[in-house]
């Protein structure tokens, strides 16, 4: 059981770092939003799942489950608002050049 916990914590760290690398590397606002919010989602879910495995079956697990669900509801709303703001302002998305 403890091995699963370690694997999930490791995945959390890995995706957290990957999200930050993506924010630095990607060209425009939409792609940067993709990298930051999505990798944050995966890393946080991994960490919360690891916490659930660590605690086993207890009232604490129910609370962590509720936190996860609230996170699943609130996180996409935040990134969606930023993206919608950019879309309404008329920011044109970056596109790959045809020669590549």
């Amino acid at each position: 059981m403890i091995l699963v916990v370690y694997i999930f914590f490791g995945m959390g760290i890995f995706f957290g770092i990957l999200g930050n690398v993506g924010v630095l590397k990607f060209p425009d606002i939409y792609t940067r939003l993709q990298a930051s919010s999505k990798c944050a989602v995966t890393s946080l879910i991994s960490i919360l799942l690891a916490c659930m495995f660590l605690k086993g079956l207890s009232p604490m697990t129910g609370k962590i489950l509720v936190i996860t669900v609230f996170f699943l509801v609130s996180s996409p709303v935040a990134s969606h608002i930023i993206a919608r703001g950019a879309w309404e302002r008329g920011t044109t998305p970056w596109r790959r050049k045809k020669s590549q």
Binding site: Y30, T31, L33, Q34, S37, K38, C39, V41, T42, L72, V73, S75, P76, V77, S79, H80, A83, R84, W87, P93
Partner: peptide
Amino acid sequence: ANSITLTPGTLTLDLDEDHLVVHWL
């Protein structure tokens, strides 16, 4: 729309009645 935004690689930009605008990485 939330699920599409949650899945890495896709991002919902707008939801108007039944019409979705999605940014696909």
